[in-house]
């Protein structure tokens, strides 16, 4: 009971804190920094969700932009295409009011996450048969297929993409609230998984799949679950990106983006949630900070990346965590000194 109460309080405090922060920052912050902040949040969600697949269960998916794209386009399709078709009949779906915006965003999020999660299920299935580099190619192939499809579907704008997506924050200044809510959700979800016995089974799949099988771990289920959860979160990132940066085009979801997200996970230290968060922040902020270098910017950026990988080949954090001990699970106790 007491723990439940504490949880409820923690959740309330988080909500209120995020809400106030969102209000405050939106008014005070320079729009340019604001946009960088939003991108950071989106990429943290992407990196942390890919870390569930690659870092924790040890698969090698490098097509995360594909799921990001599915979420973004499905979410945007709701607000720009489907919602206008049904709003005449269901007037409570009207946008422009606080509750209308929230309702529409939630619908977009649900649709985006379900579609991306289903895509993750379909792409995750080959992971049962494909290993390592073959799986990598399959996932990259999936992302490319999505990219090419988007380029060629005219109803979603082809190469130009969709612009002027309603921000859904016309009232309330809630962009940061939503984005950092999902940042927190993806981090807490990772943490809960890693601290549970179930998380141990996820890690066992990374360590030695055959041994995991032999110990009674349903490795098929673990891998597909990781794919579905990871992709659904990437889908949420897509919905948020589409609605708060108000424009999407296939280019945003190209192979470069897939590689960028993969780099974040590797650079942070595969398996480390903290590492993913920090690496995502660094890789988004760094190119902005290097803007003064003008044309040499990307060269310096690449050199810095190489230096970071050379000095910390296991990633910034290895598999360590800050802020929560990796295993705080209740351990079976035994009498005597070993407990």
């Amino acid at each position: 009971m007491r723990i439940l109460l504490l949880r409820v309080i923690a959740i309330l405090v988080t909500f209120i804190g995020l809400y106030m922060l969102s209000q405050f920052v939106t008014y005070q912050m320079d729009p340019y920094y604001f946009q960088v902040l939003i991108e950071c949040g989106v990429y943290i969600i992407l990196a942390v969700s890919l870390n569930l697949i690659n870092g924790i269960t040890g698969q090698f998916s490098i097509g995360h932009a594909g799921f990001f794209a599915v979420g973004a386009y499905v979410g945007a399709a709701w607000t720009m295409i489907w919602q206008p078709m049904v709003v005449g009949r269901y007037s409570f779906l009207q946008m422009g009011t606080l509750h209308g915006d929230i309702l529409n965003l939630l619908i977009a999020l649900v649709l985006g996450m379900i579609s991306a999660g289903m895509a993750g299920f379909v792409v995750g299935l080959p992971s049962l048969r494909l290993r390592g580099d073959y799986l990598a190619i399959a996932t990259l192939g999936f992302a490319e297929v999505i990219y090419v499809l988007l380029l060629n579907i005219n109803s979603v704008g082809g190469a130009r993409g969709l612009n002027g997506i309603p921000t859904l924050i016309s009232s309330g200044n809630l962009a940061l609230f939503w984005i950092f809510l999902f940042v927190i959700i993806s981090i807490v979800l990772s943490r809960n998984i890693m601290q549970s016995v179930r998380g141990l089974t996820w890690l066992s799949v990374r360590e030695d799949e055959i041994a995991a099988d032999a110990m009674g771990v349903d490795t098929t289920k673990v891998k597909v679950t990781a794919f579905v959860i990871g992709s659904a979160l990437a889908g949420a990132a897509g919905v948020l990106y589409a609605h708060f940066l108000t424009g999407i085009s296939p280019d945003i979801f190209s192979m470069n983006t897939s590689i960028l997200i993969t780099t974040m996970v590797v650079l942070g230290g595969s398996g480390s949630v903290t590492g993913s968060v920090i690496a995502a922040t660094v890789l988004i902020v760094l190119p902005e900070m290097l803007r003064f270098l003008k044309n040499d910017r990307m060269v310096i950026y690449s050199v810095l990346l190489i230096v970071m990988m050379l000095t910390r080949p296991q990633g910034i954090f290895g598999t360590k965590e800050i802020g929560f001990p990796k295993w705080r699970r209740k351990q079976p106790k035994t009498e005597g000194r070993s407990a």
């Binding site: 141990l200 089974t201 066992s204 041994a211 110990m215 771990v217 295993w327 079976p332």
Partner: peptide
């Protein structure tokens, strides 16, 4: 055995 896990975690997985 799961080399990067602790002995305790190995046993815990055995009882999963």
């Amino acid at each position: 055995i799961f080399a990067n896990m602790t002995v305790r975690e190995n046993l815990e997985l055995g009882g999963y």
